[in-house]
Nucleic acid binder design. Structure first.
Lengths: 212, 212
DNA sequence: TTTTCTATTGTCCCATGGGACAATGCGAAC
DNA sequence: GTTCGCATTGTCCCATGGGACAATAGAAAA
């Protein structure tokens, strides 16, 4: 699987060694002497890739960089490279979403296998994220009012109930509802609910408080 | 948080030592000299608990036991206790769902903190699993025919379309649909779709192939 | 054999959803 | 000042959903 491998390590000779091995395997490589360098020049999320990250580096540490990237919504998989076995750190890194943790020195098989897994994972994640973003983008196009109607409709409210809740005529709700279905490109209520569920809306059921 | 801690370790003196520490902290403790012993006498999933599991034990290893438990659907959190730092094993354990990995000798703070996290996690998981099981149980009560109707309805098919698809009258579908709503205890299509989504049905959209 | 469950279908009727066609009022942008 | 997007509401009409009441038929269970 082709991809860009981002190596973050303060040890220049190590970077070069790893870079050479990866390039030989056909990967595109970018190297960074520190976490900050990577943050300053954020890799595009649009191309397949992963990060090979040293745990202990001057300045921002590996796990710290992991946290920053996570905060800004990055889904670039991270493979940690650590000088010595530290179970505590390993556990935290994996739980924080790291793809793998390898110990130096790392064999080429280990390294390449981990990178392949990371790239495959990134592939998957990107697919999922794209789906989600497409849906979110559609929802973002709703006007505030349409959004309100949307929220109630996907919870099973009838037009009449929505009308009462929002202080408008049933006819008006019908119009909003129509535009919602149009903008979200769905033909049925089922699809609308399904879409809302996938978009992460709809967490609290909020029953069907009959108030005809 | 009260709970039953299941200790699996072949070292009797270690078991006893940990047991004493946990009992002092107010936990109920059960000890097992091997993974097989725990499998033979499976802890009830109904009570809050977690497993303290040695990685290297004669017979079934810790990770192997983890695999077995996972296969049979156990959600008891596992905290591994390992004699020496093994990053490879640690990564696998955590990725396989282990709650934590601690190295021996383990401090009481570390141990108790991990146990508390494990219990809290178990609490959460049990809640989620119960929700899911309630829904699944409801769905399981559907007759085969009702199930077919259900599957199509939650994908946005109209009664007419379902009738054509299943070779029955629209009226018949209406009857089935009614019983589905009744059995699944929902009042609206939106709730039905929502429920299906939560139950894990509904993965492939399968559009709204208009075939009136 | 009788009961029970499941699947099937009917009719009558009303509430709800949704398309077509049309229009008004109000801010904000140009 | 005019245009544009948004919210609002109307009427007419039809398709669909869904409740009420009722009934038939086959298969499985008691």
């Amino acid at each position: 699987m082709a991809g860009v491998i981002h190596i973050v390590d303060d040890d220049a000779s190590f970077r070069t060694a790893i870079e050479r091995r990866l390039k030989k395997a056909g990967y595109v490589v970018a190297t960074y002497p520190s976490a900050q360098h990577l943050l300053d020049c954020l890799p595009s999320e649009n191309e397949l890739g992963c990060i090979l990250l040293d745990v202990r580096i001057p300045g921002l540490s590996g796990p710290e960089l992991q946290g920053r990237l996570s905060e800004i919504g990055s889904i670039l998989p991270i493979v940690f490279l650590t000088g010595y076995a530290d179970v505590q750190t390993t556990v935290r890194a994996i739980k924080a979403g790291a793809e793998d943790v390898l110990t130096k020195p790392v064999s080429s098989e280990e390294l390449l296998a981990a990178v392949e897994r990371a790239l495959a994972h990134h592939q998957l994640m990107r697919g999922q994220r794209n789906q989600l973003e497409i849906v979110r983008a559609l929802i973002a196009k709703l006007t505030p009012r349409e959004r309100e109607v949307f929220e109630l409709v996907i919870r099973g409210k009838t037009n009449k109930q929505v009308a009462n809740a929002l202080g408008a005529t049933e006819r008006t709700i019908k119009a909003h509802r129509h535009r919602v279905m149009e903008k979200l490109q769905v033909q049925s209520l089922a699809e609308l609910v399904s879409l809302a569920e996938r978009a992460g809306i709809l967490s609290s059921p909020s029953g069907t408080g009959q108030t005809n």
